[in-house]
Design a protein around this nucleic acid. Structure first.
Lengths: 308, 308
DNA sequence: GGGGGATCATGCCGTTTCTGCATGTTATTT
DNA sequence: AAATAACATGCAGAAACGGCATGATCCCCC
């Protein structure tokens, strides 16, 4: 028996169909169908009545759903606890942060606030979704990431604690040559974020609607990685919406110019998140240090450097 | 988390070394070493201190051994229970039997004793070790197999219940042509059983030592499958030691002749085994029917046919 | 402290398992 | 009866896994 099997079975029980369960388990329907067959074969039990079209979970199996749920939770808890203990053995704390912040904001936070804490600190960087997954599976103690102002105003939910670290502007930038052509242009070459990435949703929700009516965005390249977007912008491929902290150095030395007077910009909230659970003393210290608002170097700063 | 992972970890905890644990888990040491690394990687935790030569389980992990054991037991129990319930849904009983008996003895038992029970009965055939595994994992309700007379006299252990169904002779047989050469020969071509198979051990322990001093066995082919051995014997490849029930038809029609007057034979006990646990009503009826000694058609019979 | 032996790791390669995509089949709906 | 949605299947590429041979360490004992 495997935790994955329990989760697969529960997905079918919960969603009521293989197709929907496949989606929840993030595989294609054929692959998931096979997986279920394999589970049945290895278990030696027929779990579903496949003669019905949305498959029906055999009643004897459905009756055990709660048992499955508990076993799955116990296993998940066991591995989470193992991870926590494993880290504790090294006296390590793990911070998960979104790619864009790793190079700019986070080093400042860590250096400024955690000087003495330093040695046992590890940084993992990923996209926002994966960061959240690291947090939920307890592979990370704290996550630092962006939220939209709307998200930051909403209740974080019962499982999460949140601390606001500041805000940062998401500004349109381009090379001076490209920028000069912007006011007259009807089509703007842009570095786009994928629609399913966090910044892609932000741009779609908060930037696109505020563009002038005759103005169209023409995606030249698409990347989820802010730093890659910065690279393209530097080469004049298109306009990129970058966090101010990422763009600051290029803006200062004139490689890029700020277009936020002619194109919409928006503001992102920078937050720290952690599970609302027991934490070790080191994790607690880290959290307290992050929460101390005075120490926060956010507000568009590059971390460590003073804000204007 | 997977049951297999827990079992792997527990194997190391119990045996104190990777090599020994690999043996217990029935894979080679390199493969097992890799498996452990993969588990550590996927768990994100270092489980062992590999700088010591028999690896040392990290104390934080060793401290959780009991937790692991309970989780493993719970998972194993859950799958076993699922299997039982799955079978019960079909009203099915599963009998595991050794290959050799499936064709001869078991049909007689089933037909004679279970006439009415018939429809929901399923027969699985495997070697003795796998039959036992089927029993232990509750994929089978009852196992029917051979034991040596010594085994049959010993305590079956706390987990197993045993019922003696009779005995059967293991007799040396050969084609008439080959048999004619036996008395004078110093080397006998034989159909050998693998040393790690049940009958291989029986031959090694009870037949070999009783051979005349000047007599050598020359394995011509090796097979664990009695019926395959019979096929070879029929073609005159060598002498085979076969259960009387298997050989009977060939002996009756003269295809093979019985050499037990010039070569050692031995006697095997035919037993039914089941786990000493709760059983469903159908399983209980089956067991009672098997235990009824009068009905047993054993004693070398081919099952169904009357014994001499 | 220097073999000798045991334990674990690694390179290589064949086998098995798993996945996605495209497409076929079947139950359900209208 | 046709349309639709749900599930299965054929296929090919990728990843995981195992065994074997061999290399690198650690432990023990003289």
């Amino acid at each position: 028996m495997r935790l994955e099997w329990l989760e697969d079975i529960l997905a079918v029980i919960d969603t009521g169909s293989i197709r929907a369960a496949a989606e929840r388990r993030a595989v294609t329907q054929p692959a998931f169908s096979r997986r279920l067959r394999a589970i049945e074969a290895r278990l030696g039990v027929e779990l579903f009545d496949r003669s019905r079209k949305p498959v029906v979970v055999h009643p004897a199996i459905a009756a055990r759903a709660e048992e499955f749920r508990q076993a799955a939770a116990a296993l998940a808890e066991m591995t989470a606890e193992l991870r926590r203990a494993g880290r504790a053995r090294h006296g390590r704390l793990v911070i998960a942060s979104q790619h864009a912040m790793t190079a700019t904001l986070v080093p400042g936070l860590v250096a400024a606030e955690l000087g003495a804490e330093g040695p046992g600190l590890r940084l993992r960087t990923a996209n926002r979704e994966d960061c959240l997954a690291l947090l939920m599976t307890r592979q990370a103690d704290v996550m630092i990431g962006y939220q939209t102002m709307a998200e930051a105003a909403a209740d974080p939910g019962a499982f999460l604690e949140r601390a606001a670290l500041g805000t940062e502007r998401l500004v349109p930038v381009a090379t001076p040559a490209l920028a000069a052509r912007v006011p007259a242009a009807a089509e703007l070459p842009v570095i786009a974020y994928p629609a399913d990435a966090f910044l892609g949703r932000v741009v779609a929700a908060e930037i696109q609607p505020r563009l002038g009516p005759g103005l169209r965005l023409l995606p030249r390249v698409e990347t989820a990685l802010t730093l890659a977007g910065q690279g393209f912008a530097r080469r004049g491929i298109g306009i990129a919406w970058l966090p101010a902290g990422v763009a600051r150095a290029d803006l200062d030395d004139g490689t890029l110019v700020d277009l936020s007077d002619v194109l919409p910009a928006t503001r992102l909230s920078i937050v720290a998140l952690r599970l609302a659970l027991d934490h070790g003393p080191a994790a607690e210290r880290l959290w307290q240090a992050l929460c101390r608002p005075a120490a926060s170097p956010a507000q568009g700063g590059t971390g460590g450097a003073a804000a204007p």
